[in-house]
């Protein structure tokens, strides 16, 4: 969906106004929304945080991170950055390393204190579905780069390329 004002950028801010007796939805890009009202500043918290935390550059680490996918729902970190929403409960395990500092920025804490469900079933599914080897390899790549195991990373990168080629053929 494109911005209602400039028609160029994707709309990421959604507002409601009552204009001439009609409840009206406005879909704006962040730039136009900023212009529209200073008072709305608070709403931009999340995407600002996401942008600030990831600082995507050209380093291999960032590239690996952006391709990291949740094995359960296939949402990538790049998707999360774009949508501002996660894909499923398992994403919290997949992106745990990156979500922990994000949650700390948003809430000032990353440790839940409060009630718990009567019927707790861990978010990690107890009977793992057939894992996605590509997603697994991407996850391992991020971990290898973080531990600075570059030989392992190189191997994984080749593996990922092969898997991607196979997936494209299929």
């Amino acid at each position: 969906m494109l911005c209602d004002i400039c028609g160029k950028n994707p709309a990421t801010v959604h507002l409601t106004e009552i204009i001439d007796d009609q409840m009206k939805e406005l879909h704006l890009c962040e730039e136009c929304a900023h212009d529209k009202s200073e008072a709305m500043e608070q709403q931009f918290g999340l995407s600002d945080l996401l942008a600030g935390l990831s600082e995507f550059g050209k380093s291999s680490k960032d590239e690996a991170l952006i391709n990291l996918k949740c094995p359960s729902c296939q949402l990538s970190y790049a998707d999360f950055k774009k949508l501002g929403r996660l894909g499923c409960s398992e994403c919290y395990n997949t992106f745990r390393k990156y979500l922990t500092p994000l949650l700390r920025k948003i809430h000032g804490s990353s440790q839940h204190i409060g009630k718990s469900p009567l019927n707790i079933k861990p978010a990690r599914s107890s009977s793992p579905k057939k894992r996605d080897p590509l997603a697994d390899a991407r996850l391992k790549l991020v971990q290898a780069i973080e531990k600075e195991e570059f030989e392992e990373a190189a191997k994984l990168r080749d593996q990922i390329k092969a898997l991607e080629a196979k997936a494209n053929k299929a």
């Binding site: 979500l99 839940h112 718990s116 469900p117 079933k121 978010a123």
Partner: peptide, 11 residues
């Protein structure tokens, strides 16, 4: 079966 983790709480 709610999505819940002891450290992050309700997901």
């Amino acid at each position: 079966h709610y999505a819940y983790l002891p450290d992050f709480g309700y997901l």
